[in-house]
Each structure stands twice: as structure tokens, then as C-alpha cells.
Simulated assay, not measured.
Amino acid sequence: MTIYIKNIFEEAGNISVFAFRFFKELFRPVFQFREFTRQCFAVGFRTLPLITITGFIMGLVLTIQSRPTLLKFGAESWLPSMVSLSLIREIAPVITALICAGKIASGIGAELGAMKVTEQIDAMEVSAINPFKYLVVTRILATTLMVPLLVIYADFIGIVGGYVGYNIHGKITLYRYFSDMIEHVEYIDLIPAFIKTFVFGYFIGLIGCYKGFNASNGTASVGVASNEAVVLASLSIFIIDMLAVQITDLFL
């Protein structure tokens, strides 16, 4: 038990040092803009189909499941605002971040782990290329930027899914649906949810890069790095979300 706790603190310390090195390298020239844009495309555009399907299903299912309960209390008119607030505040940010943790963090961990095992990272250092700045900084920045954009997209798709779900058993115009939604959504609902998505994206990239960049020798370590990246990134999302909810409640 003591060894297990020691390993947890040691891992946390190593990740903190890795994060500090990221901020240190971030402001050193030269910035790898081409690699950054390539990673933004890989993180953002290639994840859109999965986010589209998931976001639409989230809104559709949430609407269909919530409608009977609200109908019992004669509060069916609250359905658009309830679904929208649930998606924007909590469901869309967390589910989208978990999807990104599973797809992006694992991909980064496996990619960098394979480069570490095949000594490509060592070859970059010999060639006078800073592998940390080229491989790590660009990927963490890409996830930090793209995850919030993916969450905004998931919010919109989820709301559209909610509109479709509402019209399966009822009837409402698109204008009326969005009017009811906008009437009850305030800035205090949008801003905290949007801010925490940047933190989600940062930790997804940070943990994926950390696990891959520090993979041990051997091909088996690539799979281990990918698996640990997903588990740790998913756990960090729940912890960050819990802290974000507590902080937001202090200002409400």
C-alpha cells in the first residue's frame, strides 16, 4: 500500500515537471507552426464524425428520456431549456472530453511511444532538433485549442438532436425551440463550461504526450503507454470537472 501511494506521488511529480517544461519550451523560438496546424487537423477534423454521431445521440436520447417525466408534471414546455442547459453545462463537455481522451490521448501516447521505442526521438536530438518542442508542445497546444471547439460543435449538434427528439412524440417549430432555449440560457451557464474545456484539452494532450514521451524500451510499452494515457486522461477529466463545479457554485 505504501509503495502504491509512493508511486502515485512520484507520477504526479513527474507530470508536474513535464508540464513545467511545456511552458518553458512554449515561449522559446522557433515555434513549429506547420506541425501545430497538422496536429490541429488531426485532433479536430478527424474527430468530427465521432463527435457528430455522439452529440446527436446525446440530445436525442436525453430529450426522449426526459419528456415522460416532465409530461407528468405538465412541464413539457421546459424540455428545450432543460436539455440545452444539461448539454451545455455538463453532458457535452464531459462526454466530448472523454471521447477525445479515448481517441486522441491514446493516439498520441501510441505515436510518441513508438517513436521513443524506435529511437526516432533520439535521432531528432542528434540532428539538433528539439523533440520536446516539435512533438510535445505542438500536440498539447492543438488539443488545448481544438477540444473547446469540438465541445461547442457537440453542443450545437446535441441541441439539434434534442429538437428531433422533441418532434418524435410532439410538435414544435425550430424557431420556438431555439427561442425557449435561448430564453433560459445565461452567460453563467456558458462561460464556466467553456473555460473548463480548455483545461480538459490541455490535460488530454499533456498526459498523452507524457506517457508516450516516457515509454520504456520494448514494443509492449507502446500499448501500455496508450492504455495508461486513456485511463489517466479520463480520470483527470472527472477530477477537473468536480473541481470546476465546486468553483462555479461559489459564484452562483
Rank of each mutant, 00 (worst) to 15 (best):
G74K: 07
Y177L: 06
G205I: 11
I240F: 01
I5A: 15
A123L: 10
F198I: 04
A92D: 01
V231R: 06
V61Y: 09
V61L: 14
E11Y: 14
A105H: 10
G161I: 07
A75G: 07
T144Y: 07
Y4S: 14
L190F: 11
T144R: 03
F31D: 02
A229Q: 08
R89N: 10
Q246G: 11
M124E: 11
V30K: 15
N217W: 11
G201H: 02
I91N: 00
S16H: 05
V185A: 08
I129D: 07
G158W: 00
A233G: 06
G170W: 10
S16E: 03
D241W: 00
L145W: 06
I57F: 14
F23L: 11
Y210D: 04
V94S: 05
D180W: 03
D122L: 09
L252A: 05
E35F: 08
I204V: 13
A19D: 06
Y153R: 05
V245W: 10
L232G: 05
F198G: 04
N167I: 04
F31A: 09
N167L: 08
I91Y: 01
E183W: 12
S234C: 14
M242T: 14
R28F: 08
I95N: 00
D180S: 14
I121R: 02
L235A: 15
H169G: 12
D189G: 04
G218R: 04
I53N: 05
S179H: 15
P49A: 02
G201Y: 00
I8N: 07
K72R: 09
N227I: 12
T52E: 01
A220C: 06
I57T: 08
A154R: 04
T52L: 12
A42M: 12
G158A: 04
R139L: 09
I247F: 12
S221A: 13
A154C: 11
L141Y: 08
V30A: 14
I247W: 06
R139S: 15
I5K: 15
I57C: 03
V185Y: 07
T69M: 12
F200N: 02
F198H: 01
V245T: 11
